[in-house]
Design a protein around this nucleic acid. Structure first.
Length: 274
DNA sequence: CCCTGCCTGCTG
DNA sequence: CAGCAGGCAGGG
């Protein structure tokens, strides 16, 4: 499911529901989704502690605990998180339930079981989650045209593939890479090293612009979020290329093309993106 | 570098 | 039925 904008939404919805709550019970239905430490230790480490803050880094959700530890969650393709009343209808593929002291619980659901949870003890060096290898956030002032050109200037990778590399910029996935490149007027198949200075400048502007736009469009109340079951993307009506292959371009009205870039389905406008 | 595997479910 | 799905690690 989620790229940066969706994880940001989930964080914003869950934070008021989780912060200040004490963990009273943990049920792990599928131990394989706990990447670290082993499920039993994971459970006993978190039990009884208070949730203090939620943060997002790239597509990771980080839940800080009063014991100094951190619960890290990555939803990968189909992971979902909900805080529900304790008797709320249990969705299929619910793998972890974290019960709280107010008759609610945090549920981790994942049809394809690619998503992962980690627990990092206070002071433990994080060699597990991959967070330490992430590049800057799209909104980071470190993200300049010079940074992009310096990192990508010699790469033979397609620019779309490069945008998907989390070690260069954190949080961009298959949907928003297409949206960003449409906004920047750059063909997703172009070799990164072929981009001109003016194109890096346009790209570095469209990355935060596009991500900010979709974070705003994704805003949702906790009630609507739970009701919609995380299945409906509020930003879907605002996607300009992703999922619209064959339809007219919103800018030039000629049909959008579909292609595969680095094994990922991609959509672009052959007229507006050069 | 590209490619596959990891999973289940949906679409054509 | 094959093919594909918003992600990533690991392998060659």
């Amino acid at each position: 499911m989620p790229e940066l904008a969706e994880v940001e939404t989930i964080k914003n919805v869950l934070a008021p529901q989780l912060c200040g709550r004490t963990v009273t019970e943990i049920v792990v239905e599928r131990p394989e989704v706990i990447a670290h430490p082993e499920a039993e230790l994971f459970t006993e480490s978190i039990l009884g502690t208070v949730i203090t803050t939620l943060q997002r880094r790239g597509k990771y959700l980080m839940i800080s605990l009063q014991n100094g530890g951190t619960l890290v969650i990555h939803l990968r393709m189909t992971g979902e998180l909900f805080v529900t009343p304790k008797d709320y209808l249990l969705k299929k593929h619910t793998h972890v339930i974290i019960r709280l002291d107010n008759e609610t619980e945090l549920r981790f659901i994942d049809m394809r079981r690619f998503g992962r949870l980690w627990y990092l003890r206070k002071g433990e060096t994080d060699t597990y989650t991959g967070i330490s290898t992430l590049g800057p956030e799209p909104f980071d002032e470190q993200l300049t045209a010079a940074y992009l050109e310096g990192k990508a200037g010699k790469s033979k990778k397609a620019i779309k593939d490069w945008l998907l590399c989390q070690q260069f910029i954190a949080g961009i996935g298959n949907i928003y890479s297409d949206e960003i490149l449409f906004a920047a007027g750059i063909d997703p198949r172009r070799e990164a090293k072929s981009l001109k200075k003016t194109e890096w400048k346009r790209l570095v502007q469209t990355i935060p612009q596009t991500m900010r736009f979709f974070v705003e469009k994704n805003e949702i109340s906790a009630e609507d979020y739970l009701r919609e079951g995380g299945e409906d993307y509020r930003n879907t009506p605002f996607l300009r290329v992703y999922g619209h292959a064959g339809e007219p371009c919103t800018r030039c009205h000629r049909p959008l093309s579909g292609c595969r870039v680095a094994g990922r389905s991609s959509v672009y406008c052959p007229c507006c993106q050069k």
